[in-house]
Each structure stands twice: as structure tokens, then as C-alpha cells.
């Protein structure tokens, strides 16, 4: 039987003050993903190994981790891409660790709330009058930015977030952009104020790491770029016409 060596960074604040690594050699099969390996260890070798997962089909966003240094969805990353080499699994970079491979993502949850990710309108149409019409082209303007699964992979790849945690970050800005681009929404100004008030966005130098690692091809870098252009436009407009435009 083929085997593969998996090394995991472990950390339990109850019993150790520092993270340490632990290796496991487990049976290997062609169709195993990294998450299967972790589950194998958890079920058959060491029940204390701690990680998050749920759907095992790349859609719930729970299982983001560093695999040999790259941020990945472990349920969509095959061992065969590393075999016969070894696989090293670490918690997502740039986040505090709760335990083993479980990161604390409460910072993102706060940021999500901040950008007001819901349809904002001055007037609601009554339900009896049916849907808001939206052409396929209008839908396509924002569809891509609505695909984010909140897996946090872009944050762990973002150099700006790495040194400044006050940065709203790729996923949150992409989501704000998603609502801004939606023909049903009128909340642009409110969101612009929030996005503009965060320093980080000006530090983003378009390295585009977020877009490169995104498993859903959301392209947060484009969203950040467009938000910047929009903010600059508004800044100039308010400077030229301080009474509003």
C-alpha cells in the first residue's frame, strides 16, 4: 500500500505556549484530497487534530489552509499534486489561531457588517409588483463579485492585510463592489464613505495575489481597482464642487 507523509502545525493554547509540528504517515490514494488526509488522521490516528470542514465540494468555504505554503481549499486540493513528496499543512496565514488549523475569522465578520452587504434603496417596491427587472448584461456586471465563498484565502495571500489588519481586505471590498454594481442598489455613497475611510485601500499596490489565489475567480483585485477609481473621482468632485454633485 502506498503511503504519504503529512506534517501538520499543531497548537493548543491550553497545553502549549508555542505551535509545534507533528507528522503522520497515512495510506495514500490517487483520488484523495488534502482534507481526506486530515480526516483520516482525525478518525483513525489522532482525534485531537482540529480543523474545520463541511461540504467537501468547494462551496462552503470552511476548509482554507496553507498547503506547502500556498493558501488552498483543502477539499479541492489533491494529494496527487504533491505525491510522492510530503505535504505540510498550516493554518491560514495572517490570522490568529484558535487551535491547530482553526483560525479566528471574527475580524472578517466585523468587516463584512461594516460594508453594508445588502440592497440599499430609498424606496422599496411592494412585493405584489413583482421583481425588479435586470437584464443578463446588468447581472453580469456584478455576478463575478457575488461568487465569494468567504474562505479567507485572499486575506492570507494579501501582503497589505499581512502587515495592516485594519485593511478592509479583498473579499470585503469585492462584496461592497458587488452591491455597488447591482442595478437594484442605491447604496454606493454610503459604502464609498466606509471604503474611503480605511487607509489600507491606498496601500494596495495591485500585486493581485488575491485574484491569483481565489478559488472562485472572483477577482478582488479588479474590485479594489475600480473602487479606487470611483473614490478618486468622488474625491475630485467633492473638491471641485464641495457642495455636492
Amino acid at each position: 500500500m502506498s503511503t504519504i507523509k503529512i506534517t501538520v502545525t499543531r497548537y493548543n493554547p491550553e497545553t502549549s505556549s508555542e505551535p509545534f509540528t507533528q507528522s503522520y504517515t497515512i495510506p495514500y490514494k490517487e483520488d484523495m484530497v488534502v482534507l481526506d488526509a486530515l480526516n483520516y488522521i482525525k478518525n483513525h490516528v489522532d482525534g485531537t487534530l482540529t480543523h474545520r470542514w463541511s461540504c467537501r465540494m468547494g462551496v462552503c468555504g470552511s476548509c482554507g489552509m496553507m498547503v506547502n505554503g500556498d493558501a488552498k481549499l483543502t477539499c479541492a486540493t489533491f494529494l496527487r499534486d504533491y505525491y510522492p513528496g510530503e505535504v505540510q499543512v498550516d493554518p491560514l496565514a495572517h490570522f490568529p489561531v484558535i487551535r491547530d488549523l482553526v483560525i479566528d475569522m471574527s475580524d472578517f465578520m466585523d468587516k463584512l457588517l461594516e460594508i453594508k452587504p445588502w440592497i440599499i434603496r430609498s424606496e422599496e417596491k411592494p412585493l405584489e409588483e413583482g421583481e425588479y427587472l435586470q437584464s443578463p448584461d446588468e447581472l453580469n456586471l456584478y455576478k463575478q463579485f457575488s461568487m465569494c465563498i468567504n474562505c479567507m484565502i485572499c486575506y492570507s495571500a494579501c501582503p497589505v492585510y499581512g502587515h495592516d489588519q485594519s485593511f478592509l481586505g479583498p473579499a470585503a471590498i469585492a462584496l461592497a463592489h458587488r452591491y455597488n454594481m447591482d442595478s437594484r442598489d442605491e447604496g454606493q455613497d454610503q459604502r464609498a464613505e466606509i471604503i474611503g475611510s480605511h487607509e489600507g485601500i491606498w496601500e494596495c499596490t495591485f500585486v493581485g495575489e488575491c485574484t491569483r489565489v481565489c478559488p472562485e475567480h472572483v477577482d478582488p483585485a479588479a474590485a479594489i481597482q475600480r473602487s479606487k477609481v470611483q473614490l478618486t473621482k468622488e474625491y475630485f468632485l467633492s473638491w471641485m464642487w464641495p457642495w455636492g454633485n
Binding site: 445588502w118 412585493l127 425588479y132 435586470q134 437584464s135 443578463p136 446588468e138 447581472l139 457575488s146 437594484r184
Partner: peptide, 18 residues
């Protein structure tokens, strides 16, 4: 329809209807 009003990106026909 309520979900549509809440922003759910339902797929659309060419005339803009769900």
C-alpha cells in the same frame, strides 16, 4: 420575489425577468 428584492442574483431572461 422577496429574495430577489434582497439581492439574490437569479438568472434572467433577455427581457430582464427571472
Amino acid at each position: 420575489i422577496q429574495l430577489e428584492h434582497w439581492g439574490c442574483p437569479w438568472s434572467r431572461d433577455s427581457n430582464g425577468r427571472i
